[in-house]
Design a binder for these strands. Structure first.
Lengths: 247, 247
DNA sequence: CGGCCGATTGAAGATGTTCAATTACCGTGG
DNA sequence: CCACGGTAATTGAACATCTTCAATCGGCCG
C-alpha cells in the first residue's frame, strides 16, 4: 500500500496500549508510573493475528521476544525425533509464552494457534534493558517466572500421579479457573483444543479421554457437546481431581 | 562460646567464598569482576549442615532466601490436606532451591535433607538489591529461572506420558547426567532417596519400582545393590527413556 | 453431495496396582 | 557384640485400569 506508515503505526499503538488493555492487571501487574508504562508500550509490537494452525514460533527458532496472548489460545509442544508431538501446555489470554527460551537463546518448543489469536510481541533485549532502568519491572519479571515454575510444578504433580479421571477433572478445573480469572464464565466455556491434543497433553489415549467425557456426562458432572463444556457439579470434579487412584 | 565472632566469621567466609567453590561454574556461571564477586560472597551465609531428615524449610514458611546446595542432597515435596506426601524433586550439589517461592512470598513446598547436606543461604532481598547494581547478575538470575522452567517442562513430559520403565530409565539418566556435570561418575553412583520416594516422584507404586530395578538388573542394564547403582548399558536405558509405551 | 478427519464406542489385551507374605537391613538396647 | 524390633525392599498372584485395535458415527469443507 502507498499510504504513509505513520498513520497505521499510531493506530496499532492505540490498540496495544497496555494502560487500556483489559488484561493488563493479569499480564504485568505492576505499580508503574504513567511515564514508565508508556515506555513499555513503545517496545511492544502488535502482530497480525494468527490464524488457526499458524505458528507463533517453532522449536529451535532463535529467541527474540516473549509473547503475551491478547485473545484466542495457543498450544505449545515439542516434537520428538520420530516426528511425534508432545503437547506441553495450553495458553490463554494474558499469559506469557516463550519464557523457557531465555537460558538457551532458542525456543525449546513450538507454539501454534488453536484458533484465531492475537498476541503482543515483547522484544526481550529491550525488555531487559528497560528492566534495568525501571525498578518494579525487573522484580515483576522474576515474579512472573517464579510463578511459571510454580505452575509447572503443580502441573507435574497431577500429571505424574493421578488416575485418568483425576487428570481430566484437573485440566477442566484449571481451565475453568483461568477463564474465571479473565472474567469469563467458570462453568460454561469452549475447548479450543482437540481431544487428541487433550489426550496427548494428559498422557492418555484419545479413546480414554473420549470415554471420560461421556462418563462425566452420564454421571451428571457436566454437559459436553463437541467443543462446548458446561460444568454442572464443580464440587464433584474437585473431589475427583484431588483424589489419587483409590482414596 | 566466648571467642570473638570475627574469627569464626572470617573462617566461614573462607569456606563459602564463591570464587574458590568448585561448584561455582554450575551454580552462578557469571562473568563477574572480582570486586562484584566479593560483594556476592558477603551476602551469602553458610548454615550448619543439615542431618538426614532435617528440614531446610517447610511448606508455608515465609520466603527469605534461596539455597544453593554444596554437598549432599535434598528432596522437595508438598503435603496434601490428607497428610500424604507428593515428591516434586530431588536436588543435587550446585542446584538452587526455593525459586518457586518468589511470587507468593511463601514456600509452596517443603525441603528435607536426604543425607547430611550443606547449603549456602542467599537472602533474596539482598540478592535482588545486588542484582540491580551488577549488570550480569540480574540477567543470570533470569537465565537460571528460565532454565528451571525448562527443566520442569522436560520433567513434565516424561512423567506425563511414558510407561513405568521409561520413567525409571529417564530418572536414572537424569541423575547420571547431573552427576557427570559435577565431575562424578556417570555410571556408578548412590541413590540418596528411598524406593518409596522414587515411586512417589514417578507416580508409581513402590512395588513397580522395585520390580523394575530387578528386571533392569536381570536384563543386564545395570547392577543394583540397595542404594548403589552401576549402569552397564547406557544406550539401552536411553532407548527405553525415549520410547513411549509401544514404539 | 461426497469424502475425510475427529470423535465415539465396543471388546480383547497389556500394563500397573493392590494385597499379602517374605526377606534384608539398620539402629537400638541388652 | 549380638539379639531384637522395626522399617524398607522384594516378590508373587489376583485384580483394576488404561490401551489398543477395530468399527461406526457425525460434522465440516470443498
Amino acid at each position: 500500500m502507498s499510504v504513509p506508515e505513520s498513520g497505521v503505526i499510531s493506530l496499532k499503538r492505540l490498540q496495544t496500549a497496555c494502560e487500556s488493555c483489559s488484561l493488563f492487571q493479569l499480564c504485568l501487574p505492576l505499580e508503574l508510573a504513567h511515564a514508565d508504562l508508556e515506555e513499555l508500550d513503545h517496545i511492544i509490537k502488535q502482530r497480525r493475528p494468527l490464524q488457526r494452525g499458524e505458528y507463533l514460533f517453532q522449536m529451535g527458532n532463535e529467541f527474540r521476544a516473549v509473547y503475551a496472548i491478547r485473545s484466542g489460545s495457543i498450544k505449545t509442544f515439542t516434537t520428538t525425533d520420530g516426528g511425534e508431538e508432545q503437547v506441553t501446555g495450553f495458553h490463554l489470554p494474558s499469559e506469557l509464552v516463550g519464557l523457557d527460551a531465555i537460558t538457551t537463546g532458542n525456543h525449546p518448543c513450538s507454539a501454534r494457534a488453536l484458533e484465531t489469536t492475537s498476541v503482543c510481541e515483547i522484544p526481550f533485549d529491550r525488555l531487559e534493558e528497560l528492566g534495568s532502568r525501571i525498578p518494579g519491572l525487573q522484580r515483576q519479571l522474576l515474579r512472573i517466572m517464579s510463578h511459571e515454575i510454580l505452575t509447572e510444578q503443580d502441573t507435574m504433580i497431577w500429571l505424574g500421579k493421578k488416575s485418568a479421571e483425576a487428570r481430566l477433572a484437573a485440566l477442566l478445573l484449571r481451565l475453568s479457573s483461568r477463564f474465571k480469572a479473565r472474567k469469563f464464565s467458570a462453568s460454561d466455556f469452549n475447548l479450543s483444543m482437540s481431544r487428541t491434543d487433550i489426550a496427548n497433553y494428559l498422557g492418555l489415549a484419545v479413546e480414554t479421554v473420549s470415554r471420560l467425557f461421556s462418563r462425566f456426562q452420564s454421571e451428571g458432572l457436566l454437559e459436553v457437546d463437541r467443543k462446548h463444556v458446561l460444568i454442572k457439579d464443580m464440587g464433584a470434579l474437585e473431589r475427583m481431581a484431588g483424589a489419587d487412584h483409590h482414596n
